[in-house]
């Protein structure tokens, strides 16, 4: 492994919340990412698009630290994730990265409130009561507070996604990574959820990376990053 690096900023220059450099990743039979570079600034919304198999979801999983790149570096808030010990990398992820995966992926044995409280409990920095109050506040913002005592198995796809968004945002992450966040919703429900997600990220000056094949989702972004066969085909500013 190469020497760990820490990014520093010159005066007046901000460190990117997410910075990926020449990232490569391969599954046993397929090269999924072939030298991807990506910088995302605080408050910026970036849509990652591309046809199926272009590497979109792999890019998100590598950015989240769920997959380790074969080569290249991933910095979150200036810290190289791959160079950190596992415990430190997990802590960095819990504190600073909110993740919304396809279909929500909630813990089925926990209530909705417990699912959303989980990132705060794992971090151990808050009393249970204040953690639950904060979780309840996010459920209210996502318009699912009435489901606090329900269990994931009782939720519709759309409700699960809203709870997953609340869970991703509850710890106040600097970086939010979302993989097809509106995939299981109808167009009106999807539009509403996307609006809530983007508004919360913009209000909190959070960086948001959304992987999507839905043009309407991509169009809310400030920038589109188009992947083709594991490389960035082009980037386009949409604002």
């Amino acid at each position: 492994m190469s020497e760990p690096t820490e990014q520093t900023a010159m005066p007046g220059e901000s460190v990117a919340v997410l910075s990926m450099r020449d990232v490569q990743f391969a599954y046993p039979r397929t090269a999924a990412l072939r030298g991807v570079n990506l910088d995302v600034a605080a408050g910026e919304v970036v849509a990652v698009t591309g046809r199926s198999g272009s590497g979109k979801s792999t890019l998100l999983h590598v950015a989240a630290g769920l997959l380790r790149p074969a080569s290249g570096t991933v910095h979150v808030l200036g810290q190289e994730v791959g160079a950190l010990p596992d415990a430190a990398a997990s802590s960095l992820r819990r504190k600073h990265v909110g993740l919304v995966l396809q279909h929500g992926l909630l813990v089925p044995e926990l209530s909705v409130l417990a699912n959303v409280t989980l990132p705060l409990v794992l971090e151990g920095t808050q009393q249970r009561a204040s953690a639950q109050a904060l979780a309840h506040d996010w459920l209210t913002r996502l318009e699912v507070a009435d489901l606090a005592t329900a269990f994931p198995g009782e939720l519709s796809g759309g409700q699960s996604q809203r709870v997953a968004v609340a869970r991703a945002l509850v710890a106040g992450p600097a970086l939010v990574l979302a993989d097809e966040p509106t995939g299981s919703l109808d167009s009106v429900g999807g539009e509403r959820l996307l609006d809530l997600l983007v508004s919360a990220c913009r209000a909190g000056n959070r960086a948001l990376v959304v992987v999507t094949h839905d043009n309407r989702v991509a169009a809310v972004a400030d920038r589109e990053v188009r992947l083709l066969d594991g490389t960035v085909e082009y980037e386009a500013v949409l604002t």
Binding site: N215, R216, A218, A219, E224, Y234, L238
Partner: peptide, 13 residues
């Protein structure tokens, strides 16, 4: 094609 796609996405945005 990419420029056209961006133009439409901007309009959508």
């Amino acid at each position: 094609l990419a420029r056209q796609r961006t133009a439409f996405l901007r309009q959508m945005h």
